[in-house]
Nucleic acid binder design. Structure first.
Lengths: 141, 141
DNA sequence: ATTTAATGATACCTTTAGGGGTTATTTAAA
DNA sequence: TTTAAATAACCCCTAAAGGTATCATTAAAT
């Protein structure tokens, strides 16, 4: 009942980099500021680049940068890139042939929660995160 | 962004057995009606018994039965028994030292979703599931 | 008493998420 | 043109979740 570490790291990386999306961040820089194991961070930066969320620049003075305008990247984009997203019609009890047309009490209740979750992920962009004061800086040691 | 299989199975088992909580269900019976691998099902029935959610009766004519009145078992009880409990104040970005007193936009938004999720799990009992028509039967092949 | 139909206990196997190590490749700067 | 600072690629290790196999124990029915 959580995001995977990979998704969590993905959200953390992208949100941190969105604080200044014109800047080129090195893996070392991110390692020093985020609480992510170095090798795993490297692997994931690579992955996020291949997914088109980051642009990577090789060589000396290289680094990573957010690939698109902040308002074009939603949290759902990040979650989808790093994990399987909850299918829209997933049965609460995990029956793969639970017909959505047949309503059980959990279908409705759970559907509401799932929809609310997805709605937030879908409508919140990296730009939105920084509109208001965000504690990302504060939350780092 | 899902329950674990173990939690999903737990919910499935308990909800199915709540259709008739006076009945003694054998592992074989449950295997024939739920879509859970037999050996794993056996292990989990054992586990749920130790957790006090089921009562097991050994020997010929034995089986499993829900341990308490249906209205005394919430979905959260089942989730907590089979998975790590969802922390109340978990930072969306997974920073373990993210201070809740400092508000970032995600803290509020995500907090609302998390609260709604927990509220449903906490307030829905096995009794509630069967108040309304439930498609559990229909969802089985 | 013996058989039989049930659960209990335990150890093992498999897959995958998370993490680590090493060597190549790129490119700006000396 | 060599060096240094960066990313890329590849392979391996570990722990935990999910799943399997086997044998022991219980207790009703014969």
């Amino acid at each position: 009942m959580n995001f995977t570490k990979t998704t969590e790291y993905g959200l953390r990386i992208m949100s941190y980099m969105s604080l200044d999306n014109s800047k080129l961040y090195t893996a070392n820089d991110l390692f020093n500021n985020l609480q992510i194991p170095f090798r795993y961070l490297r692997k994931q930066l690579n992955f996020l680049s291949k997914q088109g969320l980051l642009v990577s620049i090789q060589g000396k003075q290289g680094g990573y940068q957010i690939a698109k305008p902040l308002h074009e990247i939603t949290l759902l984009n990040i979650v989808e890139a790093t994990d399987e997203v909850i299918p829209e019609n997933k049965c609460f009890f995990g029956f793969h042939d639970c017909p959505l047309t047949e309503k059980c009490s959990m279908h409705d209740k759970w559907g509401d929660v799932r929809d609310a979750t997805l709605e937030i992920l879908r409508t919140t962009t990296l730009f939105d995160l920084n509109k208001e004061k965000c504690s990302i800086n504060l939350s780092l040691k």
